[in-house]
Simulated scan of single mutants.
Amino acid sequence: MTLKKKRVKLEDIARKLNISIATVSRALDENPRVKLSTREKVFKTAKMMGYMPNQIAKSLSSGKTNLIGVIIPRYDESFFIEVCRGIDRYVRKHNYKILISSSRNSFEFERENLISFERGLVDGIILSPTHETETFVHIKSIINKGIPVVLFDNIREEVSGADHVLIEDDKASFSAVEFLIKKGRKRIAFIGGIKEKKVFQDRYDGYKKAMTKHNIPIYEELILHCESLDRENEDTEIQDFFNNISAIPDAVFTCTDNYGLLTMKTLLKMGYKIPEQISVIGFGDLGLGEIFVPSMTCIAQPSFEMGEKAAELLINQFNEPNDVNHRKKVLKLKTELILRDST
């Protein structure tokens, strides 16, 4: 039976070298008050014994952890994965690392995650609020305690003291739907996510504005707001939607890449030709649309850049620690309609 090895502590190294714990600590921090020969001896012994520094213990003396907390609604969405990649790439250039936590589309979990991060684990927080987040008191409380915060994506209301990174969802969807109308499509369906999520509300508003501007009727039976929060049920909802409408649309605007791909899969299974009979546009352009057959026209959302910009704004806040009246910055990134075979 193998015995579990104990974690090596500073006092173990001090005992081995017959020096004080304080000297070991200073040596590992490369403090010039400790002789170079002693520092080298401590480093060599620490490595030999398998010592791993306790980041939280270090933060108690320095006031910094060099960790950034990132809270996203779900792990299984390509958009959030890309944003986190962008955050990680930027912060590593500035000697920070990220801790990612999911609120699981729950306001209660979002609040719990914030409280956990508040307890000294991170130097700042980047957060995408859930569709259930109707009050921002918990976020304002964090800001009031001096913890820098950046919000991105689903921002229902402006929060004083927090920087914001977003896109103009209504304008992006307006341009996509108007493109379909100018291609001669008149019976255009809309497929979005849960109604309570602001980005989906804004994308629906853009759809309605384009239809109204060009005097195209909006048929209630061609509107689907998916209620599911997992992909398997989203697939079922979209299949049921197309199986139960009286007449198939000649175009479909969808609010995510995933909805677009599920729409194309369903329509192709039903025997329809894309784009000859039905055009499809997705939202995101996160890779899969390009390799699907036929390839899918998408609104390209700068997800990776959104992560980089959120990280940049947060680290800029770190560099202005005495600015108690931080002036909120709102950064709006541009989108682009990428044309492919589905239109």
Rank of each mutant, 00 (worst) to 15 (best):
R231C: 08
R104M: 03
N215D: 13
Q55W: 05
I223F: 04
V42Q: 14
E82C: 02
E237I: 02
Q239A: 07
R74P: 09
M48G: 04
F292L: 03
H225K: 10
T335L: 14
F80C: 11
S61R: 10
A247T: 02
N325C: 04
N316W: 12
N54I: 06
I147Q: 11
I19F: 11
L286T: 02
F179R: 15
L36P: 00
A311H: 06
C226H: 05
T23Q: 13
R185L: 13
L36T: 08
G69R: 08
V149G: 09
I115R: 14
S175I: 12
A162D: 01
E11F: 07
S25N: 07
I248V: 00
V8M: 09
N244V: 02
I291Y: 14
M296D: 03
D323A: 11
R26V: 07
E336S: 01
F136D: 04
T256H: 12
E168Y: 04
R92E: 00
N325G: 04
Y259Q: 09
C298E: 05
V150R: 06
S116K: 13
D230N: 14
L288E: 09
H214V: 03
D153W: 07
S78K: 10
S101L: 13
I216F: 13
R104E: 10
R74L: 15
Y96W: 11
S102A: 11
E40V: 11
P249M: 09
A310P: 07
L121I: 03
I194S: 11
P294E: 13
E110R: 00
N243Y: 04
M52C: 05
D76E: 15
S303Y: 08
Y207K: 00
N18V: 00
Y96M: 05
R187Q: 06
G50D: 01
L314T: 02
G307I: 09
I19R: 09
K140A: 05
I72Q: 08
P129I: 10
S103W: 14
I125M: 15
A210T: 03
E108T: 03
N154S: 15
R185Q: 10
P32G: 15
I147F: 06
A251M: 10
T256Q: 14
V149D: 05
V24F: 06
A14H: 01
I216V: 15
G192P: 01
Q301I: 08
V177N: 12
F318S: 10
F242I: 01
F43S: 14
V150G: 05
L267D: 04
K195M: 09
F190E: 03
L333I: 09
F318C: 09
I68W: 14
P148S: 12
I218Y: 06
M306G: 07
M1Y: 14
D257E: 07
A57K: 03
K44I: 05
Y272R: 03
M48R: 15
N319V: 08
G271W: 04
F283Q: 03
K197Q: 14
I291H: 01
I315Q: 11
F283T: 01
L60E: 01
E77L: 08
G124F: 13
N113W: 07
L166M: 12
L17Y: 12
L60P: 00
I142R: 09
A172Y: 12
I139S: 06
R7N: 09
D29I: 06
A172W: 04
D230K: 00
Y272Q: 13
V137E: 11
G193S: 14
D205R: 10
Q301K: 07
I299L: 10
K186Y: 04
R89P: 00
I338Y: 15
G284W: 13
S61I: 04
N95E: 05
K171E: 12
